[in-house]
Amino acid sequence: MAVASVLADRDLLRRIGRVGHRIVHGGRNFTGATLLDGPTLEALRLLEPLAPIHQRINLELVALAAEFLPRALQVGCFDTAFHSARPEVAKIYGLPRAMTETGIVSYGFHGLSYSHIASELRDRYGARAGGRAIVAHLGSGASLCAMDSGRSIATTMGFSTLDGLVMSTRCGALDPGIILHLLEDGKLSHDELVTLLYEQSGLLGVSGISGDMRTLIGSEDPAAAEAIDLFVYRIGREIGSLAAALGGLDTLVFTAGIGENAPFVREKIGAAAGWLGVGIDHELNRRGEGVISLADSSVNVLVIPTDEERAVAGDVQAASQAASLRAT
């Protein structure tokens, strides 16, 4: 609000004709960048329970932008869209079909980040985009994506942003029986359970110190080391799972806050994936080079900064061009 007010006071807003919004959840219907008209926004509000810490805020920002820029096109760019073309078997759960048909499926997230990395891999390697690649988006939220020629094949996040890897304050994948136990025997309320799983778990919960990887790496507390070990262990296990989905591994990419800036964590993950042919050069990794694999590594290991804003900009341009074509 403060930024928008300053821009309005300086008469800069009138120059803006298009606004791109990162929206975490697009559900099953929004699989590409979409103009945010009334019916679309109403449909996206219905998805708020599926992304409770993200969706409402995303849509509030859309409303704010529409207020300050009533003539500009508002375009939604969805974190779930990149994963929408995965095989159906990669999306469904072992639940009754009627529940699947209501939308209880795996959606996957961090899609704008993965879209950018796929584009970078195409620039580097051509249409094959690094072949069978696993991209590790490791930040406060963390996930992995298996790509074949730049297309999502499988990913660690599923129905919600709680799934998969241990994260900064989120639990990652849990046995569903734990949830039942916490509700029935622990007598946790709905709100207490949400707070526990989203805000009090992950690296923070395991270490009892912090959800910030930098703090944990700098700590001598054994609990901090255990939290890091769990983070790496779960990533190593999931890399094996995704490599199985791909039928092998040609490229491993690290991105996002931890992936781009924590050589110690990259090296430990590389060691965990050594059986797949991953070999990380200690000195290249320490310096944070773009290519950190050993000369004889059978897997190319890269560090590529993510740029979700660039991915949004590309989506907005494509959606605007499509809208112009429909209008002619």
Rank of each mutant, 00 (worst) to 15 (best):
A223H: 13
A154L: 06
S168L: 06
A244M: 10
G211Q: 02
S143P: 00
Q200W: 07
D191F: 07
L246F: 08
G150N: 05
S210K: 09
S201A: 13
G247E: 11
R234A: 06
G158A: 14
R214Q: 14
E192F: 01
F159E: 10
F254R: 09
M147D: 06
R128C: 07
I178S: 10
S160K: 08
Q200H: 12
H137A: 11
L180W: 05
L138M: 12
I228W: 00
Y198G: 12
L246E: 13
L242K: 02
T161P: 14
R151A: 13
G247S: 13
A136L: 15
L246T: 10
G139N: 11
E226M: 13
L174N: 13
A245D: 14
P176W: 12
E199S: 15
L138D: 07
V265G: 04
L216R: 11
A142C: 02
E220K: 15
L230I: 14
C145A: 15
V166R: 07
G259S: 08
G211P: 03
V232M: 03
D163A: 15
A146M: 01
A154V: 03
D229V: 04
D148V: 00
A146G: 00
L249M: 11
T155S: 10
G211F: 02
E238I: 03
P263S: 05
S189G: 14
G141D: 07
S210Y: 07
E199W: 05
A225W: 12
L180K: 00
G236K: 13
D221F: 01
H137Q: 11
G141Y: 11
L182N: 08
D212W: 03
G211M: 04
L174P: 09
L193T: 14
R132G: 02
A227E: 06
S207W: 01
T255C: 14
L174F: 06
R237P: 01
L252Q: 09
L252Y: 04
S140L: 05
F231M: 06
S140N: 15
L196D: 11
L193R: 14
G236D: 09
G247H: 10
R132V: 02
G172I: 03
M147F: 08
S219G: 12
R214W: 13
G240R: 09
Y233E: 14
G240Y: 02
D212E: 15
S207D: 04
V253P: 01
L242A: 04
R214H: 15
H190K: 14
V265D: 01
G130I: 08
D250F: 11
C171G: 03
N261K: 12
A142V: 04
M157G: 06
I217W: 00
A262P: 02
G218L: 04
I178N: 03
G150H: 02
S143F: 06
A223P: 06
I217K: 06
A133E: 09
T251D: 13
L242D: 03
E220G: 12
G218C: 05
L246Y: 08
M157A: 08
A256D: 08
F231T: 05
E220H: 15
L162E: 04
G247L: 13
I178D: 05
A223T: 15
L242N: 00
D175E: 07
S219I: 12
D221P: 05
A224N: 10
A146T: 06
A127N: 05
D229P: 01
P176Y: 11
E238K: 10
R234N: 08
H137S: 09
G172A: 08
L216W: 12
G205H: 09
F159K: 07
L182Y: 07
A223M: 15
A129D: 06
E220R: 15
D185F: 08
S152W: 07
A142W: 03
